[in-house]
């Protein structure tokens, strides 16, 4: 099955540790897995695994730095996720206005 990009982003962010990794990356700026693990309650191996899942969803990008990879946040997918939520809100505004009109019409009949 094809995967919607927003779905990949939300799935990647569904894991609380991954959200911590994103938060740590946004606070520390570009970091290695070792640098991130120092500030998170998980092992470097676990951080590496989460970073690779985040990279698959396009949420982080990696560049080589000596023996390690330097990770940084790729802001676009996060913005996409936020705008997806904004669209959802706008749809409900329209629906609820239509619901109000529907109930009003029903009462007039």
């Amino acid at each position: 099955m094809k995967r919607d990009r927003t779905d990949a982003i939300f799935s990647a962010l569904a894991d609380p540790t991954r959200r911590q990794v994103i938060r740590a990356l946004s606070q520390q700026g570009p970091s290695t897995a070792t640098g991130l693990a120092a500030n998170l309650p998980v092992t470097r191996q676990a951080v590496t695994k989460h970073l690779s899942a985040l990279a698959d969803a396009g949420l982080v990008t990696a560049t080589r730095k000596g023996r390690e990879k330097l990770y940084q946040i790729s802001p676009r997918p996060l913005t996409d996720a936020v705008s997806w939520m904004a669209d959802l809100g706008a749809r409900w505004d329209e629906r609820l206005a239509a619901l109000r009109d529907h109930v009003a019409g029903f009462r007039r009949r």
Binding site: F10, M85, L96, A97
Partner: peptide, 11 residues
Amino acid sequence: MQTVERAIMIP
């Protein structure tokens, strides 16, 4: 994660 919350008053 974010939550979408909307409300409307219906008479």
